[in-house]
Nucleic acid binder design. Structure first.
Lengths: 208, 208
DNA sequence: CGAATTTCATACCAGGCAGTATATAAGAGT
DNA sequence: ACTCTTATATACTGCCTGGTATGAAATTCG
């Protein structure tokens, strides 16, 4: 029998047959970079297999198909690269949360990774996605939005905002700026320009 | 001889041969909608020809190839749909300019047109564009940015901003929010949510 | 009317796409 | 050593892509 390809992890000790000659985690990381740089449709299977260092049958046996591979890459992205979101939510004030998010997003632009948030790129890029991918992207976004909204509601109760400021509105306002940062990073803005966007946003930020 | 396809306009009175059986302007408008909704790579030639109501040879004879067609559609977009940018620059104060842009962008989301700014979508979508297309998109963006920066520098001289606010930074801040609005509109935000983004941005806006 | 010219309609092309069939290689269990 | 099972390598499939060759239709000029 074929073991469940969803597990990705190498089969445990009682393994029969030829062992796999590549590390699925490393391959998935390589695939993530390709999707990140080129988008879902822009990444071809040959490009993916070359970056992953495996052949097509190996890819299909281990990850299913292109759509499943993308979804696993997206999960990995959310888990690893968006750790600063969960960390940022623990900042003591609303402005601290905003600063953590903005600086976290900024840090991601200066590294060696492709520029711009993969989720944003995936959401904007194309309408031809399989519905399941669109649904997953939007559900991830909704979950993040909800977490920020709840955090900002607490911030309002703690007096972080001036009177009359809607926490949910501030949450969407913040995410809009983060998304705009992705667009600008993607279209060639320099790190200095992006940092100026961060400081400007924080300078304007209402409350503490 | 073949008349210059770049002119698009119907040949003038001294025309020999079978007359064209479609309106190039209407066809280009239809093509623009397809590119707008699906992105450059997402729009296939068959999809384009069906939406334009013409056959492939007619398209190629009149518009050149896919890249040239996209560029002409982009020019049309910039000319028609972004009129509110030029109009907005004439607002009396910096905040007035911001409001004009935000409300103009919001109005574009409520109409029947595809959602989100075509330039933003094109800039983010994919790295596989022909270089000329990328160059054109970025040059258009730079021109708009520059116009906003100049307008905001005048606004600073006229005292629209509080002390110490950098006009260029405010310009990029505003465009970031507009780009974020495109992302949110593209990923299913309701008009009401987008309007809240507008009012929030204006409530926070520093100066007049 | 006929000749020249341009557009249109159909069918077609090479190439790239996602995905797979087949055969061989490499390990584990007996 | 032999079988069973799984992974790899090569070659392939059908399909869709952007782009085009060819011939018929429609017009103007002589």
């Amino acid at each position: 029998m074929k073991f469940d390809p969803d597990t990705i992890v190498a089969p445990h000790s009682t393994h029969r047959g030829r062992p796999r000659q590549f590390c699925p985690d490393a391959a998935l990381t390589a695939a993530l970079k390709v999707f990140w740089a080129r988008g879902y449709e822009g990444a071809s299977m040959t490009e993916l297999t070359e970056a992953m260092g495996i052949t097509k049958p190996s890819l299909y046996a281990c990850f299913g198909n292109k759509e499943a591979l993308f979804r696993k890459a997206l999960d990995l992205y959310e888990k690893e690269k968006l750790a600063y979101v969960r960390a940022g939510l623990t900042a003591p004030t609303a402005k601290g949360v905003a600063e953590a998010f903005l600086r976290g997003a900024l840090a991601m632009q200066t590294g060696n990774d492709p520029r711009g948030c993969l989720s944003v790129v995936s959401a904007v890029a194309c309408t031809n996605y399989a519905d399941s991918i669109r649904d997953e992207i939007t559900s991830l976004r909704l979950a993040t939005d909800h977490a920020i909204i709840e955090r900002f509601e607490r911030a309002r109760d703690e007096g972080d905002f001036p009177e009359g400021v809607d926490p949910a509105a501030m949450a969407h306002y913040l995410t809009a700026i983060l998304q705009g940062m992705t667009v600008q990073a993607r279209s060639g803005a320099t790190p200095a320009e992006l940092e100026r966007l961060v400081t400007t946003t924080l300078a304007i930020w209402p409350g503490r």
